[in-house]
Design a protein around this nucleic acid. Sequence first.
DNA 1: ATAATATTGTTGTAAATGCAACATATTTTT
DNA 2: AAAAATATGTTGCATTTACAACAATATTAT
Lengths: 154, 154
Amino acid sequence: MKECKLHYTDSIHYELEQTSRLMKKLTNQLFEKVGITLTMDEYAALDTVSINAGICQRDLAKLILRDRANTGRILDSLEQKGFITRFIDTKNNRLVRKMGITEIGLKELDMINKKVKQYLEGVTKKVTPADVEKVQETLRSFRIELEKTVEFNI
Amino acid sequence: MKECKLHYTDSIHYELEQTSRLMKKLTNQLFEKVGITLTMDEYAALDTVSINAGICQRDLAKLILRDRANTGRILDSLEQKGFITRFIDTKNNRLVRKMGITEIGLKELDMINKKVKQYLEGVTKKVTPADVEKVQETLRSFRIELEKTVEFNI
DNA sequence: ATAATATTGTTGTAAATGCAACATATTTTT
DNA sequence: AAAAATATGTTGCATTTACAACAATATTAT
């Protein structure tokens, strides 16, 4: 069986790409509609910083899967908006720029998270929670496997 | 339960985004390694054209989820490389640019598809086929649902 | 009939993104 | 001790991408 699954539109890559693209677009539309001043990437970075206090830039870059250059620029913006603070510290005897979320950053994040939660519930309500759970779980192990294969020098 | 799923890194959006990003990167690396001259987007477009002979640009744009401008540029490149031919035709009494795959385009596509198949099998071998199937199926219904919600004027 | 709206494709532009190169500092190798 | 390699962050640039504006034509509304 399955020998005929030779086309791009039948591949899991296609489903991932399309779904991810749609989801990104939907989130952008939501962010604009409810007047969120952050970009999606800034939000993702801020959220990740909030649960990884004192993380350095490169480690954050690995978590949000952007390169160091982009991560730095996203952090510049977040810092300029007052949502994070950056400070010099050492990690393995090396100077690194660590960061943490600020008070107003936390407030902003909570506000966004509440709205995002609402939206996520809306989006996933047509699929059973069990299915969502299953997809998420499988994607995670899938992703872990991919991370081993992909050469990334962040 | 599930009330604590408030963070971005716990969301299905995060898994989708990260997995899609990794998969794209892996595919890019593969394309370069085996000397494929097409970009991933050109490949996706070519494959979609091959199973939708005589499709017009806007309809193709909807299938590959790019806007009309980008789709046109991708097609320019494919045409310039001789992999597709474009011709003027009508659709609902309107002049449109339709297209079809050429002989050498088909050869190129078959060559790439074989290599992609190999690669896909490698990537998914650590997850059970049933799981891949399940994810793909759920993502599809998920995507269909998203398409109803997202405002896209392609 | 005329005006307004819709369909299709192209061009221009601004933002995002990745990549390579650079600068600095530290560790490892020779 | 000197040289090579590694880690971290930044800058510059080229590519990708989306979005808006435009052009041309056809349909629908007034």
